[in-house]
């Protein structure tokens, strides 16, 4: 795939970790918006589906010097050498040229899970079973997002259906540019502490672009050179240092 192609817009996020209190609102809103089913009967934290997952990281000291930080981690939407795009044998993953969003098209996916292995952020999830909701709860599903079946991979796409709706709204009024207020992913909208800024990173006037350039901003595993479009911020040194590690692994390893 053409990963070097520069997208028209580069949508991204800046998550202020000093404002995240780990309430889980983003994860709940994400599941509601994207028709992510409840855990299958035997699903665990290794086999679940959490497009947005909050990891609790620790500073490694013991009580009472211990400190914690919550890392909400979704797909990081890598812009360069995107690992999942380059390994997919099916072309089920590409980078949307208009938004820079890394896609995942379940009907095309053959379920080899190569992309899951390739993703350094553990942000891709596999449907080990068919989705199931309690009886009649399909009436509470979002019609703008298709329901996935067993045997395919899924992940965050920055609530792409909301982008599509924003484009349609703009088009209905004869415009080609969307109103940024119309495209806000569910997790961003749901965050009670406004810890997540979202928008076009290439628009120098946008809040997200300003925040991504803040001195306390960093990206996870920046050393890999995958140019993620999700930035994190923290004034705490140990939290910023966590960015160089595998946060998901570290946070699980540190807790029993």
């Amino acid at each position: 795939m053409n990963t070097a192609h520069k997208p028209k817009a580069r949508y991204g996020m800046v998550i202020d970790l000093d404002r995240c209190n780990g309430c889980g609102g983003c994860a709940a809103a994400c599941a509601v918006e994207n028709n992510v089913p409840p855990a299958a009967p035997k699903a665990s934290d290794r086999t679940g589906l959490t497009w947005m997952r909050i990891y609790r990281a620790e500073n490694g000291r013991s009580f009472p010097e211990n400190r914690t930080a919550f890392f909400p981690i979704s797909c990081q939407h890598c812009g360069a050498h995107t690992p999942c795009v380059s390994v997919c044998p099916q072309n089920a993953v590409d980078i949307n040229p208009e938004t820079g969003v890394v896609s995942q098209i379940p009907p095309r996916c053959l379920g080899c899970r190569y992309c899951m292995t390739a993703c350094p952020f553990h942000a891709r999830y596999f449907n080990w079973s068919d989705p199931e909701w309690p009886r009649d709860m399909e009436n509470a599903l979002n019609p703008d997002v298709s329901v996935r079946m067993r045997g395919v991979v899924e992940k965050c796409n920055f609530c792409h259906s909301r982008w599509q709706a924003a484009v349609a709204k703009a088009a209905a009024n004869g415009k080609r540019e969307i109103d940024p207020a119309d495209y806000v992913p569910a997790c961003v909208e749901a965050c009670p502490t406004e810890a997540i800024a979202f928008g076009n990173l290439d628009d120098p006037r946008s809040e997200v672009s300003r925040q991504s350039r803040a001195p306390n901003a960093f990206r996870l595993l920046a050393k890999l050179g995958t140019d993620p479009k999700v930035y994190y911020r923290s004034d705490r040194d140990w939290v910023r240092r966590m960015g160089d590690t595998d946060v998901a692994y570290e946070s699980e390893a540190s807790r029993g």
């Binding site: 949307n96 208009e98 938004t99 969003v101 098209i105 703008d144 792409h160 599509q164």
Partner: peptide
Amino acid sequence: VEESCLTCHK
């Protein structure tokens, strides 16, 4: 017109 997977898939 630009097209990629997410242009027409949801």
